[in-house]
Design a binder for these strands. Structure first.
Length: 578
RNA sequence: CGGCCCGUAGCUCAGCUGGCAGAGCACGUGACUCUUAAUCAUGGGGUCGAGGGUUCGAUUCCCUCCGGGCCGACCA
């Protein structure tokens, strides 16, 4: 047994496990456990005068225990919430045999175990709604102690806050931090709200490739992988835009996808290597229509979630009630810096950047410089929802030229809390223009812009067959969820945020045979490993066999192993010091 | 990639100027039939993230590494 590596509490729980088995109780039963109640439903709806919930069966995890002599309390947590249970010896054990109460309930159960209970609901003298247990079933034994979080008057004591624990072991976070489950329920609800809206309009939810031969649709560094059979590189998608537009070419009027995208870039509180984007494309619409639709989407999700459009994010109050402010990028820069860039050329823009100490690089073109000015000086100021419209052509290669303003495209981004939440265009559907824009991107790429877009010739071919005028939009679901659930970091709205792997201590251990070969009796192998001599080599590095002998005898005594101590000469022989 | 901070019992955290490793909860044993951060008594539990250095002596000081957080850079 290598129980020596387990903590005391883990060992005790494993012993309880064995004891349960000896009592004929399977700690991991296979059978379905039919419940007929949830904790929250009981708490909300139990009324003594109605005499309801008198034959309930529920299942959940033991979260706390208050063990007394012949009666005990515990708290059971199911998916809906927590409820107190009350077990009395003579109710649980009506006959002579009191084992189920005295031994199983009081001694062998632990915080963290999954338990099923049958009984009736009552109110205690203290007024707490409680399930009086007539019968209980061990449904799953927990052999690893859970962090114990106590709570009184809504204040948590010893709450688990260590981010590493919370993100790496999200299952623990979800168990002991109930509000975390709420966040993820809300995340799903946000997506459901949108899906309802889209489906009610007859738009089609689709799935498009995640493994793409050309990572198109956005300017970003992709993850690359390799397909063995085809012997070719494949990329994890950075966007699904080009595929959805192919479907509009194919004749669907509205298509959407909740897509995981992947970008091989930095990680911080707003960026995770994989993230979720809703992209939606609708034929015969333009970006003006899409702005109104975006307002409707945001308003609906907020209302469905909170019943109001005014939300709190950190120390800010944000009102998501439409209409949202609309301002062109040029006007936004004027509003925030006082500089009118509408007639400036590339050199002038550089001077403006220098004057405002906005960093820029030689390979940046006019569009990039404008983008840079906006990003540095304007973006963070738009706390209330604001549409920034009419982006430079250079950085918008998939967007239709503006119908009346030269040099800009029909594109908008929605800013909330100073961050981009949505991005949309009147989609470029002129195949010849599209091909030229792709070639411009190629030139930028040759100039050193490593995030210029790849050319997708098949996409151009699709446009050549004719795509109806279309507007498309993408919403960053993670960021929207952050705002709607008041979470400061993207890691708080991702169930399993990306983390560096834990250092799995590469445990190189010598085999049993290796120890036997140098003369160590089998019974001493485990103790030696626990003393740190996990390999024969390490053992042989010992210089004083007398010291090792002392350690071994001491270990034997301390752990009450009752083994026969080796002689000094035995130990000397293992080390080959003769 | 740079700056700052953190890593000690299952969990939350103390540990001062280098001198036997601490508390609360949890856990074990005993008492207790409506408790609720249950209570009372009592006991056990540690590779102080890893490795190296200085020192008679390192959880503490120095260096390297690993992991995490915040801020910045990059990145829509």
């Amino acid at each position: 047994m290598s129980n020596m590596n387990l903590s005391e509490q883990e060992q005790i729980r494993r012993e309880s496990l064995d004891e349960l088995r000896k009592l004929g109780i399977n700690p991991y039963p296979a059978a379905e456990y039919k419940t007929n109640a949830f904790a929250q439903d009981i708490l909300d709806n139990y009324a003594p005068e109605k005499n309801n919930f008198q034959d309930v069966c529920l299942a959940g995890r033991i979260m706390s225990r208050r063990i007394m002599g012949n009666a005990s309390f515990a708290e059971l947590m199911d998916s809906s919430g927590r409820i107190q249970i009350y077990a009395r010896r003579d109710d649980v054990c009506p006959g002579e045999d009191k084992t189920m109460y005295n031994t199983v309930f009081k001694r062998l159960l632990d915080i963290g175990d999954i338990l099923g209970v049958k009984g009736h609901v009552f109110k205690t003298q203290m007024g707490e709604t409680t399930v009086h247990v007539d019968e209980f079933t061990v449904l799953s034994k927990s052999v690893r102690p859970l962090p114990v979080v106590k709570e009184k008057d809504g204040i948590l004591y010893d709450a688990v806050t260590d981010p590493e624990m919370r993100y790496r072991q999200r299952y623990v976070d979800l168990i002991v931090n109930p509000h975390v489950r709420d966040v993820f329920r809300k995340r799903t609800q946000i997506i459901q709200s949108m899906r309802e809206l889209f489906n009610s309009r007859g738009y089609l939810e689709v799935e498009t490739p995640i493994l793409q031969p050309i990572p198109g649709g956005a300017a970003a560094r992709p993850f690359i992988t390799h397909h063995n059979t085809l012997d070719m590189p494949l990329y994890l998608r950075v966007a699904n835009e080009l595929y959805l537009k192919r479907l509009i070419v194919g004749g669907f009027e509205g298509v959407y996808e909740f897509a995981k995208d992947f970008r091989n870039e930095g990680m911080d509180r707003n960026h995770n290597p994989e993230f979720t984007v809703l992209e939606i494309y609708i034929a015969y619409k333009d970006y003006n229509w899409m702005m109104s639709f975006t307002e409707e989407i945001v308003k609906k999700t907020a209302l469905d979630l909170h019943g109001k459009t005014e939300i709190t994010y950190g120390d800010k109050v944000i009102n998501l009630n439409p209409p949202f402010k609309r301002i062109s990028m040029t006007d936004a820069i004027k509003e925030n810096t006082g500089v009118d860039i509408s007639d400036l050329d590339e050199d002038d823009l550089r001077k403006v950047c220098d004057r405002l100490s906005v960093p820029h690089a030689p390979e940046m073109g006019k569009g990039k410089l404008i983008d840079q000015l906006f990003g540095e000086k304007c973006e963070h100021n738009y706390i209330q929802p604001t549409f920034i419209i009419d982006y430079p052509t250079e950085t918008s290669p998939l967007t239709k030229m503006h119908r009346s303003k030269p040099g800009v495209t029909e594109r908008f981004e929605l800013m909330i809390n100073g961050r981009e939440i949505a991005n949309a265009y009147s989609e470029l559907n002129d195949p010849i223009d599209q091909m030229e824009r792709f070639q411009d991107q190629l030139r930028l790429s040759e100039k050193g812009d490593d995030e210029a877009m790849f050319i997708d010739l098949d996409f151009v071919r699709a446009l050549e067959y004719g795509m109806p005028p279309t507007s498309g939009m993408g919403i960053g679901i993670d960021r929207l969820t952050m705002i709607l659930t008041n979470q400061p970091s993207i890691q708080d709205v991702l169930l399993f945020p990306q983390m560096k792997p834990e250092s799995q201590k590469a445990k190189v251990e010598s085999k049993k045979e290796d120890y036997l070969e140098i003369g160590v009796p089998e019974e001493w192998i485990e103790p030696l490993k626990n003393l740190g001599f996990t390999t024969v080599t390490k053992l042989k590095e010992v210089e004083k066999h007398t010291k090792l002998h002392q350690d071994i005898c001491g270990y034997n005594k301390k752990n009450k192993l009752g083994l026969k101590n080796p002689t000094q000469n035995d130990v000397k022989a293992w080390l080959n010091l003769n």
